[in-house]
Design a protein around this nucleic acid. Structure first.
Length: 492
RNA sequence: GGGCCGCUAGCUCAAUUUGGUAGAGCAACGGACUUUUAAUCCGUGGGUUACAGGUUCGAGUCCUGUGCGGCUCACCA
């Protein structure tokens, strides 16, 4: 789309702008009037609340126009919807009808119209316009009135055009807002305190990811955009809040794909005096609450099928899930090289010297994740990819952790939080060893966080969920770009 | 980062199997039209075919490179 050059069509609109000004009409007046939205006017008419000669004042964008000589029909659109307008030269006069509406008003312009509501012969509820006022002139021609814009690049880069012409897209973002408010409502009702923690962090942590790096000029300090909220929220549990949550943006300096955007919205909550089992129950209850609030039912369409969010969701040990899907029992391969070898035999690309936990994670995403369409919890994860989770009492190499899946995607991750400061210190040392061995996503040591744990943190369950992915599920979208208003794109 | 696909008028799309004057609908402009529904009818203008090279008498079409986008693999959530 060319935004740089002035096309002949835009040139004509600019000429109209001059003609309007010459006629003493302000094309961008500061004020307008309005008595009803389009939807309110239609509802009031249908309810018989409007007298036959009672004028309403409507505003909106002119989106369709049918000029038939001395009468015209059109549709104006506001955020509540569209309403038909009917204009007659005999009512409006030559000046307003011919010189303004027919000659100087274009599709896309914002209008204020005043007149009574009636029903046409064809049965459409319509405003019989007696007065018309231009309240904002557009200069660029609008997208096709029927097809709108369809090319993804145009839709994302100029999202306003997408929203302007595609009602389904507007609906996605209305649902997204209800998802977020539903989560807040659930957590607020359960006594969770909403908090805000630093986005600019001197030490990043709480996830395995590469950060964005920035710099504070005056303090001459390196800062990282957060990759999670975890370590700060746990400090608040140490401080005595028992239930806290944050909804906000995380930043990860990694690849972009249909399910990854460099910045994405995350919900994390931490709850003292519970464990990962308690968090699992809360997760299915919370998601079910949101699904019910957004859709009014538990079964919703997704891709070719349906997803049923009715709790309880199946719990399946990670080892068993992988065993079933691949017939590989990773407990039979206690050393990474052996596991690596069998994976190579199966034709899975594996980098040499990948740690065992990462191999298991790869088995999960390769064999299991795409097939987990119905909500499912996988439980009991390897310790070496979970440096902040509490050890399983039964096995030293496992932690009390689960991930939730639906629609073939991971949507959440949670565990019994590690609150043993000395164990945490040791885990950080293991991460440092991995970093030394070349793992760019190894968790950096955070001594300040360990200090907080030394002051004592109660047993705590913690949880994180990608809001974008939950929204994908609840709006039946296959790409994260469809649920982020301005997804990341390369500069043109 | 690798592989595959795409980019044509303001918008949506065409353009005979290596090639022969780049078209349509909507939108715009001029005209007709007092109950239309993506109004209809008559007429007119609008293009550096993403960009840069190359092959050819001749390139939207074939070749090479670049940019942007999509899918996919790798990486990840």
């Amino acid at each position: 789309m060319s935004m740089e050059e002035i096309t002949d069509q835009e040139q004509r609109r600019r000429e109209k702008l001059s003609l309007l000004r010459a006629a003493g009409i302000d094309p961008y007046p500061a004020r307008n009037q309005r008595t009803h939205t389009a939807k309110q006017a239609i509802a009031a008419f249908e309810a018989g609340e409007l007298a036959a000669d009672q004028a309403v004042i409507l505003v909106g964008r002119l989106v369709l126009r049918r000029v038939m000589g001395k009468i015209s029909f059109g549709h104006i659109e506001d955020s509540s919807g569209r309403i038909q307008v009917f204009l007659r030269r005999n009512d409006l006069g030559e000046e307003a009808y011919n010189n303004l509406f027919r000659k100087l008003v274009d599709l896309g312009d914002f209008l204020q119209v005043k007149g009574p509501i009636f029903r046409t012969k064809a049965g459409e509820i319509t405003c019989n316009v007696q007065e018309i006022k231009l309240i904002a002139k557009t200069l660029h021609p609008m997208p096709d009135k029927w097809h709108g814009v369809t090319e993804d690049e145009t839709r994302f880069r100029y999202r306003y055009l997408d929203l302007m012409t595609n009602p389904d897209v507007r609906e996605i973002f209305r649902i997204r807002a209800r998802v977020v408010s539903g989560l807040r409502e659930y957590l607020d009702n359960e006594g969770f305190l909403e908090v805000e923690t630093p986005i600019l962090q001197p030490i990043y942590g709480g996830a395995a990811a590469k950060p964005f790096v920035t710099h504070h000029n005056q303090l001459d300090q390196t800062l990282y955009l957060r990759i999670s909220f975890e370590l700060y929220l746990k400090r608040l549990i140490v401080g005595g809040f028992e239930r806290v949550y944050e909804i906000g943006r995380d930043f990860r300096n990694e690849g972009v794909s249909f399910k990854h955007n460099p910045e994405f919205t995350q919900l994390e909550f931490y709850e003292a005096y519970t464990d990962y089992q308690g968090v699992m129950r809360r997760t299915e209850e919370m998601v079910a609450y949101v699904v019910q609030k957004v859709h009014g039912r538990m079964r919703i369409p997704y891709q070719d099928g349906e997803i049923d969010f009715t709790p309880p969701w199946p719990r399946l040990p990670l080892r068993e899930a992988i065993l079933r899907a691949s017939s590989i029992d990773y407990d039979q391969y206690s050393e990474a090289p052996a596991l690596e070898a069998i994976m190579r035999e199966r034709g899975i690309e594996v980098k040499p010297d990948t740690p065992r936990g990462k191999l298991i994670d790869k088995l999960l995403s390769h064999y299991v994740e795409p097939n987990l369409i119905q909500p499912t919890f996988l439980v009991d994860y390897p310790l070496d990819i979970s440096p902040l989770a509490k050890r399983s009492p039964e096995r030293v190499d496992m932690v009390e952790r689960f991930e939730g899946f639906a629609g073939g995607m991971e949507i959440c991750n949670a565990f019994s939080e590690l609150n043993d400061p000395l164990d945490q210190e040791e885990r950080f040392r293991m991460e440092r060893a991995m970093a030394a061995a070349g793992d760019e996503e190894a968790h950096p040591i955070d001594d300040d966080f360990v200090l907080a744990l030394r002051f004592g943190m109660p047993p705590t369950g913690g949880f994180g969920m990608g809001i974008d992915r939950l929204t994908m599920l609840l709006t039946n979208q296959r790409s994260i770009r469809e649920v982020i208003l301005f997804p990341h794109l390369r500069q043109k």
